[in-house]
Amino acid sequence: MRPWSLLLVLLVALPLVAGVATLPPHDAPDAPIHTQVGALYLERGVAETGMKNLVTAVLLNYRGFDTFIEVVVIFTALAAVLALPKGSAPLPKGNAPLPKGSAPVPKGNAPLPQPDAARSQGVGGARSREEEAPEVASDVPVSPVVRFVVRLLAPFIAMFAVAMLFRGHITPGGGFQAAAVFAAVFIALGLVLGQDRAARLVPVDWRPWLQGVAPLAFALVAWIGWRLTGAFLGYPIDDHTVQEAMGFVLEIAIAVGGGVVLARIFLEMET
């Protein structure tokens, strides 16, 4: 296995090195990457988008469609995790037999190690949620100190996320970063409080809407932009207030939607 792997890696490495060796030097100001579209963005970006953070400008305005699809990708990840069979749920009747005889996959049908036996060894606290005590996550050995600190800090971390969200147009930061921090708060709370209590922070009725809120907000903004400027996801260039409002809607949706999706993925994975 190993010699072959090394050979493969070498085979891949050689052309890659050859490729990067012939690229223009990366920090020269006259490299194409700095003279083409990028230069135009730097030159006109603030005027055209009203955003001082040009990364955000590219993200939301010039290449906003990429970002749209990007939030679709994380939604896809959530849909994927939700669509997988759940560990403890019984399989529906008459499940189709599995294929036999495909070479590299272990063959089906024969008795397999019992899932329960496997779980007691426990990768990542693999216990079914039904068994879990609703109030305190007694199965997670969390020291009282950690629990206290997390609970104490959670609001502040969330505040920091909000700050990142709203300062994103002039400092590094923005919706995705905020989403990651939001999700981290959720997950940390879930670990120390138990998942059910953490999950309760988001009302059940809202969940299906919240997890798709980012693509939906994009579609809405795209539609508004279409009505206003005649172009899908277009921002009215001369009206900075509307531009900013549209940008904020997107940022907030990304932060909330992304956070919910990431947190939900974590919760769902605890089969």
């Binding site: 579209v37 305005n61 010039y62 906003g64 172009a231 899908f232 996801l233 277009g234």
Partner: peptide, 13 residues
């Protein structure tokens, strides 16, 4: 072609 966001071809998507 369709320029998304109203941007011309190589400027936007």
């Amino acid at each position: 072609s369709y320029g998304l966001g109203g941007w011309a071809a190589s400027y936007g998507i």
